[in-house]
Write a protein that binds this DNA or RNA. Sequence first.
DNA 1: AGTAGCCGTGGGAACGCTCCCACTCCCGGG
DNA 2: CCCGGGAGTGGGAGCGTTCCCACGGCTACT
Lengths: 339, 339
Amino acid sequence: MARRPRTRPTLEEVAALAGVGRGTASRVINGGAKVSDRARQAVEDAIAELGYVPNAAARALVTRRTDAVALVIAESEERVFGEPFFAGVVRGIGAALASADRQLVLILADARRRGSLEHYLTRQHVDGVLLLSLHGDDTLPDRIRGHGLPVVVGGRPNAGVKTGFIDVDNVQGAGLAVAHLADRGRTRIATIAGPSDMVAGSSRFEGYVEALTAADRPFDERLVVRGDFSLESGARGMRTLLQRDPAVDAVFCANDLMAVGALQTLRDAGRRVPEDVAVVGFEDAPVSRSTVPPLTTVHQSPGAMGREMVALLLDTMATGDMLLPGRMLPTRLVVRQSS
Amino acid sequence: MARRPRTRPTLEEVAALAGVGRGTASRVINGGAKVSDRARQAVEDAIAELGYVPNAAARALVTRRTDAVALVIAESEERVFGEPFFAGVVRGIGAALASADRQLVLILADARRRGSLEHYLTRQHVDGVLLLSLHGDDTLPDRIRGHGLPVVVGGRPNAGVKTGFIDVDNVQGAGLAVAHLADRGRTRIATIAGPSDMVAGSSRFEGYVEALTAADRPFDERLVVRGDFSLESGARGMRTLLQRDPAVDAVFCANDLMAVGALQTLRDAGRRVPEDVAVVGFEDAPVSRSTVPPLTTVHQSPGAMGREMVALLLDTMATGDMLLPGRMLPTRLVVRQSS
DNA sequence: AGTAGCCGTGGGAACGCTCCCACTCCCGGG
DNA sequence: CCCGGGAGTGGGAGCGTTCCCACGGCTACT
């Protein structure tokens, strides 16, 4: 294997080989405007021959852009890494950034480093920030924006926020699920809701209520229990529901894991699914395919969420408008055998 | 809120404010050698007052170092993102890199981009490469090294590789599990092994065989079945084992998920765990805490793996020796109620 | 026939840093 | 009393780009 020359070729060398000036070579590589075909061809040949790649540091120095985007995951959310949904989001982000020729700088911000994180972000290295967050009480996005750095948040921090976020349309998704249950002729449609202090919890509940009304079903408080998105809380919630109203014939669970718990309780109670009780989840997690029976659930596309986050960030960077409206991503119902 | 000055302060401004030369200011920020206390203090005050942060691009341009490290996850492994173990590894890497003041550039390399990945890595942006891989048939690490870039692989590609990797000591871990079962007086110790073409599969099986011999237990081929690390394959494997030898009184599963499957089969077959059959897993996945009964398993520390990967990479970068020996990380047995 | 304007071009300047050389002190030894 | 040398310092050069200005040649007007 031939030893490559120790130093990387520079633009100057490319220009020399192509027999043009540095400026022309630069123009070929970038804008491309106002270059004769002959010169362009010569430069492109030289680039290929030398295996030239622009030096990112030199470019960043003069343009004051790094072509890098930070993905910040706060420590409290680090566990999301282990969740398939967020893994999918990260993948979507990675793919979208790669297509846009941007680098993804991953920052796992622990609490200690919180101060220097801001310092780092605002004064260095990246052109924009992607934030993955579940909690609502965070002023970090606005603080970063205050320093002139574009920010897009994945998962709307709270319902009051109208700009700079991408989230799944939880209200619409929950509506889909409930409308489906009503369509199936179910009359006593219960819900195992999520925590009301999380957007995913409150919005899905909101969608449940709306769709119930739209379908002319009465809203009955006794058919509402709250879980914490865990399997156990789903099982417990289902027991409560059966106790309160043995005639319940459908239940919409705010996520799949709670639906799995509900399924267990129903089996233990000798109820057939879907004959006696129909069950619908939310998330379309991998587990929903392997439950018994396979779970009908609201599908949300993590990849799309990642891609949309990047798209919105690039838009923000391009327009300079820090307050671009956020987007809600549509969901769709995946009907399996539990309903 | 006062508007920050449009341009970031430069080293020159810091030096001017401190009343010293650019060289002295630079010396304070970096090496620190040969600077009088008076000058150092003045520069540090000026830095604090101006909120100065060195421009990374300018620094990279002259030092030819970026202080960034790439973490490459090949598409075929992208799913690992959703697995708690790998999420932990990434976390460990992130933490270790942050302490070393290095940036983590995440590259999700899909197959299409495979060529340009190498191009990108070798000619740009990063000082070293971390590779997360499960498959053995990959020449990528060596190709990258051929370009003079340090590489550390997480998860040994295959048993022949002696350098530049960090892995869990699978043989030792499996030995721990089997020795424990032998200690408990079990005589017919079976195993549900993993795929033989994966290091985790073959090494854990190797450890099983070794420990069996060390404990004076006969190796019986009928007590060996192979799974694919999935829950279903564990359940199936256990059925096969019970069929072949109803007197089996212990089973070592090459991962926790298969152990969960085995547990299900045993319950369905009316065997008590651990009274009739003891079960041990590998991984200490979150699920192992919530099985019935809670699973005894081999604990491997993902955080340690990430940190060790970074440590080895930094060592490689510092010494310039591309062929530093790899390391096997010790495991320990977590005894719960299934054995 | 002269000139205004455009296209395509070359190269100086600047980006902000580190490296390194040269310079000034000042101390101690011959 | 002179001189060698170390400690501390200032600032020039250079890293590889992009930006921008000035320039030459050509076309198409007046």
